[in-house]
């Protein structure tokens, strides 16, 4: 069984604006400075999948709609 990942990030569309990074209540988003995407930006990455609560706040502030958010499976919650 693979580990649950709560977010997919369309990194090819990310412009590294950092609005999501400041908005995330659990501080689990950061720019991935090891990557430069085709648009020329460091895209955002999820630093700790276990601490993400799937609250959707990042998706709500994202101007480039890069986030797909998944519900944490029940067994995985506690």
């Amino acid at each position: 069984m693979t580990h649950f990942v709560p977010l997919d990030i369309a990194t090819d569309r990310c412009k590294g604006c950092e609005l999501c990074i400041g908005a995330c209540p659990h501080h689990v988003l950061a720019l991935d400075e090891s990557v430069v995407n085709a648009l020329g930006y460091h895209p955002v990455t999820l630093t700790d999948p276990d601490e993400c609560t799937s609250c959707v706040i990042c998706a709500r502030v994202c101007p480039d709609t890069v986030f797909t958010v998944y519900a944490r499976p029940k067994a995985d919650v506690s």
Binding site: K15, C17, S54, P63, D64, T68, V69
Partner: peptide
């Protein structure tokens, strides 16, 4: 995985010309 948020269908699947972080 159960999707709770994803890109709306009504948007074209392309990157916009707006500057990073633009509210448009």
């Amino acid at each position: 995985r159960r999707v709770i948020y994803r890109r709306p269908d009504a948007l074209q699947d392309k990157s916009t010309h707006y500057c990073p972080g633009c509210g448009h």
